[in-house]
Nucleic acid binder design. Structure first.
Lengths: 374, 374
DNA sequence: CTGAAAGCGCTTACAG
DNA sequence: CTGAAAGCGCTTACAG
């Protein structure tokens, strides 16, 4: 392997000079420069980034922790992130907690060992907030609270809930089923700082529907990593629905068993919505007349489902932009206060470092799975 | 930052000894070991991987070049790859040529500068084979030929073509439309070593349909990166089809204008198939009675489309396994023959290094978009 | 079994 | 403007 030393020798200069030329830094006479450049060319010299990394204490890589790329939501997110990070000269290190059976702890360990410069955390974690805050290296959270020194970027899920509620109310929905992850997600741990993002959506939506007197219920699926599990869950749901419909005699009266109006709206992620369209067709239901369907995320499934989906779109580009900006901040920060001065730093901690929360607006994109509203 | 030196000082030993303990290599007396371990614990010592990287000349990262993660095919592929690479202690560096506007040359440059140990190339490239073979660092190709020193792993697309042809013939198809990428993909450059994988599929399928006397045509879309472009193309296709259907009087006679049987089968990627299901519904066509639809890949879209898709499944796990094995081989290879001895190495090149081509079987998964066959 | 030394390939003060 | 030196933090022969 040809190194700087070889170039220096060939050009008859010192390695320092070669370094200056390679980095276009400092002052080098034109004569020296051209001598060095020629030598580099002749030897086909390529700088070894490993050495720079060691010196600078940087790798230029950001780990992006997601459950799995198999879910279109995370694929879209990572795609946007990679583009944004690249603008900051940062590479994207894919850190999946489900695709490889590697827990986030492994990735955090790598962060500690300087195999990456920072982590963007977009997967569920069972670790408590102080695990994350005590890492002492750059971490930024997507869509979850990881402790009050760690910046968060998230979509405005409350707004999402309001937008969907508005659509459902105005279109005359009477019985809504929300399909989401395991019910345990709603568990309020300590200060209500659940790490599950979608919960805010369902909660807001539920409140609004209550206010409008619209019946609603929640159906729990498996974890987000199990895409096929969603398909199965939605399948079962429709089997149940169609039983209750046919059981109650009066389909067109709009009232099923025991005076309960039949389910006429399904909301959930894009995956849920896409599966719901399929199942509705399979059960001979007309979408949106018999049942409205509203997805959440705005992934490629919007166009690939049986009907163009009405969805809440998360603004992936803006989210990625903010996440990238935050991690760049964190990486460049002096990040002192970890070393010996543990005692006195604790004092100012609370007051000092209440990390920012960026909330990115969402939008409703109307497709063919909802009825028009006035 | 606490380094080995600090640990050594605290433990009253040399850095060499600390190193031996950290790496569990060589012989260290129990006494020394425990002294060192205690010091490490008390100082919360964490080894810095950057230094190791420099010494070893390795980063433990493999760049995976794909066009975009937004296409479910590549998301699935990368997901599988990440899992496999992790088993070899390798991290996955996401290298997208479309999501960031970074050409593959940039990633190759990074490979040269030792920012990664190897590259798995799964995106289209305009660079000729000798560009790739002259890199002199580990590269493995997915689904394309990159020159005869570079190992390739690909699905058996010819088998895919045969399986689909069989399905279509047996189910009585009469007029098949294949929807794929730009027609330029079929250009035969030099030795027929096109870098576009799907071409083999369409070609084999076309030949078989010809042999069976089944009419077929090819509709070209934009590049694979433009997922929405596929949706538009399929939309236009159906508009055209339904015109010709309604134009020709005799829909049920099965013969349209000018005695041409109406299109009764659409084949393409999963994305194409999913869109086709949607459009078929929108145009009042019954799937699979009026038109059969067959996808290719076997991504999550199989379950998310309007009907469960009949598809050719690529075996992502096996593909990932082979790719990982090949890149590990390439990274560990002595990889001599690049340096000064250019002249005499050329002699034995052809005979020596005809790199392997792993061909992974595909399978037909029958869904609800095709008619049953005997 | 342990330590002093050289070195991975580059960068940056610091003298000249 | 250029060069000799020290150093990034670790690893591995090589003497003891």
């Amino acid at each position: 392997m040809v190194g700087m030393r070889d170039v220096a020798k060939k050009a008859g200069v010192s390695v320092s000079t070669v370094s200056l030329v390679v980095n276009a830094s400092g002052y080098v006479s034109d004569e020296m420069r051209s001598k060095v450049e020629r030598a580099m060319r002749e030897l086909d010299y390529i700088p070894n980034e490993l050495a720079r990394n060691l010196y600078r204490g940087r790798t230029g890589m950001i780990g992006v922790i997601v459950p799995t790329l198999r879910h279109p939501f995370f694929a879209t997110l990572v795609s946007a992130l990679q583009g944004r990070l690249a603008k900051h000269e940062l590479q994207t290190l894919l850190c999946s907690t489900a695709d490889a059976d590697t827990g986030e702890a492994e990735y955090v360990s790598r962060l500690r060992r300087h195999m990456m410069d920072g982590i963007i955390m977009a997967a569920h974690t069972d670790h408590p907030a102080d695990y994350w805050t005590s890492i002492g290296r750059p971490v930024v959270a997507f869509d979850r609270a990881l402790g009050d020194t760690i910046a968060t970027v998230r979509s405005d899920h409350e707004q999402g809930g309001r937008l969907v509620a508005e659509q459902l109310v105005k279109s005359g929905a009477r019985h809504v089923v929300m399909v989401g992850g395991p019910r345990s997600q709603f568990d309020d741990r300590g200060e209500g700082a659940t790490t599950f993002p979608t919960v805010r959506y369902f909660q807001t939506l539920g409140e609004r529907l209550d206010a409008a007197g619209i019946r609603h219920e929640y159906v729990a699926c498996g974890p987000v990593t199990d895409v096929e599990g969603y398909a199965r869950a939605v399948h079962l749901l429709f089997d149940r629905l169609s039983e209750s419909r046919s059981g109650g005699s009066a389909r067109d009266s709009g009232v099923g068993d025991a005076g309960i109006p039949p389910v006429d709206a399904i909301v959930g992620s894009d995956v849920v919505a896409a599966c719901a369209v399929k199942e509705a067709f399979a059960h001979g239901l007309n979408v949106p007349r018999d049942v409205q369907i509203i997805g959440y995320d705005g992934t490629c499934l919007v166009d690939c489902a049986g009907l163009t989906l009405t969805v809440i779109k998360q603004d992936f580009d803006t989210i990625a932009e903010r996440l990238a900006a935050r991690i760049v901040d964190a990486v460049n920060e002096p990040e002192g206060r970890e070393s010996k001065d543990g005692e006195d730093s604790k004092a100012g901690k609370e007051s000092n470092n209440a990390a920012a929360v960026d909330i990115v607006p969402v939008s409703l994109r109307t497709g063919d799975t909802t009825r028009p509203v006035a």
